[in-house]
């Protein structure tokens, strides 16, 4: 059983909020190497289907628990992750994977397994893998997919609304006053106001709080979708799904890092630079 490092929590207890980004980065590295190990466990799973499945789902839960804690301290870091590659960043939806993507993952894996055993399935034999989704499972998954897409849209709209508040009256006014102050400074007129700084600070804090709430909803939908799909599947099917999810996540991460490293080597400087342990 893996122990989840939660340096994020530790640093906050030490009263060092500045270290959160670094610590989540560290946590992520640990988490992803655990995911690597779990993938190996999933591939050799025997009788202990249920416990391995539960372990992997708990691993995802721990990820979002830690992420949520860190987001409360520094939501901006969570929305501009340093621990992912630029390839992964390009496909981010509100700081993570798009929930509706889980159904595509499922359909794609299911399709591959279905085509591989088509003859048997048509003859009414069971293969017990994702190609063998029953009528009721397809029905439940389809229903779930529609619901997830709806919620995803609602959260996207929330985010749109919140992003638009960047240009709300108070922001525009504050930016104007701040600019005036800079201009006054340039003219040599010293005009500094602690009160004004506080006002900017509190306004920006509100923006961050808004982001944090939206990120929270997005992460809840991500974890909820994953768990709901796993629950509709039989334990054996769930193992196949979790394998596909881990493989996609791990390989995408690797491919992205490779691209970034290549850019780094070519000196284009566009790639993301980070020191990853795996």
């Amino acid at each position: 059983m893996s122990v989840f490092p939660c340096s994020c929590n530790q640093t906050s207890e030490k009263g060092n909020p500045g270290g959160d980004t670094e610590s989540f980065h560290h946590f992520f590295e640990g988490w992803i190497s655990e995911q690597n190990q779990h993938l190996k466990d999933l591939l050799v799973v025997g009788e202990e289907l249920q416990s391995v499945k539960d372990k992997v789902v708990e691993h995802y839960e721990s990820y979002y628990k830690t992420k949520s804690r860190c987001a409360k301290q520094d939501v901006l870091a969570m929305l501009s992750p340093t621990w992912t590659s630029s390839l992964e960043d390009a496909f981010l939806w509100i700081g993570g994977w798009r929930p509706s993507m889980a159904f595509h993952l499922l359909y794609s894996k299911s399709g591959l397994q279905f085509e591989a055993r088509l003859q048997e399935l048509v003859q009414g034999l069971r293969t017990h893998d994702l190609g063998d989704l029953s009528a009721s499972q397809i029905s439940q998954l389809d229903e779930m997919q529609k619901r997830v897409i709806l919620e995803e849209r609602q959260i996207t709209d929330l985010m749109a609304g919140h992003q638009e508040t960047v240009a709300d009256a108070s922001m525009v006014e504050l930016s104007h006053v701040a600019s005036e102050m800079i201009r006054a400074n340039e003219r040599g007129e010293v005009e500094e106001s602690k009160e004004f700084e506080d006002k900017v600070e509190s306004t920006l804090v509100q923006k961050e709080e808004g982001l944090e709430k939206i990120l929270q909803k997005a992460d809840e939908l991500r974890l909820g979708t994953l768990k709901a799909i796993v629950n509709v599947l039989t334990p054996k099917q769930a193992i196949h799904f979790l394998i596909a999810a881990a493989e996609l996540h791990l390989r995408l991460h690797e491919w992205g890092k490779k691209i970034d490293a290549r850019k780094e080597n070519h000196g284009t400087g566009e790639g993301k630079n980070y020191n990853s342990s795996i």
């Binding site: 399709g111 591959l112 085509e115 088509l118 399935l121 190609g131 989704l133 397809i138």
Partner: peptide
């Protein structure tokens, strides 16, 4: 169901 799954698989 099989035809639907086949369509999705393809």
């Amino acid at each position: 169901i099989l035809l639907t799954k086949l369509a999705l698989a393809r």
